[in-house]
Amino acid sequence: MLNDMNKNDQEQQSIDLLQQITKGEQSALEAFYRLYESRVYRYALSKLNDSFEAADTLNEVMMEVWKYAQRFEGRSKVSTWLLGITHHKVYDRLRKRKKTNLEDDIDDFSNQLIDESNTHMEQVIAGADDANMIQNCMSRLSSRHREVIHLAFYEDMHYQEIAEVSSCPEGTVKTRVFHAKQALKKCLAKLMAAMESLT
């Protein structure tokens, strides 16, 4: 209950700050930046996997807020609106990198991994407790799969909110979460098996 109150307070504070930003108050932008910079940066990093590009994206997103804060209409939470802007900025960067085709290839590759018959859940769970191992497997995921894992488990968003941020149908989000999980499980099981064969 207290947590919900804090969340509501923060939401109201964010809306107030956006209204002040609309009036050109730079101090409000500074407060807004401090409130959200880490979340915007982390989200951009989860998709781009490049700290420089993620920092540049953060800068672009905050400039967008400075110029167009009046576009926030209150139809979603401030964080959902803000991460939606980040999603579009990141997507532009990925398109410039011309990696869209590559991502599709990786998606297809992940689709091939859904056969669970050789996946031992005990190994997977043990692997998931090892930060290095899970980091290794996370880095092998496609940008889209890292994105949904980040939004589901760092932002703790519901499918519906993830769909709103990433501008795609809820069903697509569910499919991506499913494929991301399967790819991670397969990768962790393989790494654990390789470790065991060495010992």
Partner: peptide, 24 residues
């Protein structure tokens, strides 16, 4: 559920240094 809980712990605890005041 155990697997997803471990995954969430990793994602939450991952150390990431954001640009902070320099970005501002």
């Amino acid at each position: 559920a155990d697997f997803l809980s471990a995954l969430r712990c990793y994602v939450k605890d991952e150390k990431v240094t954001s640009p902070g005041e320099m970005g501002l």
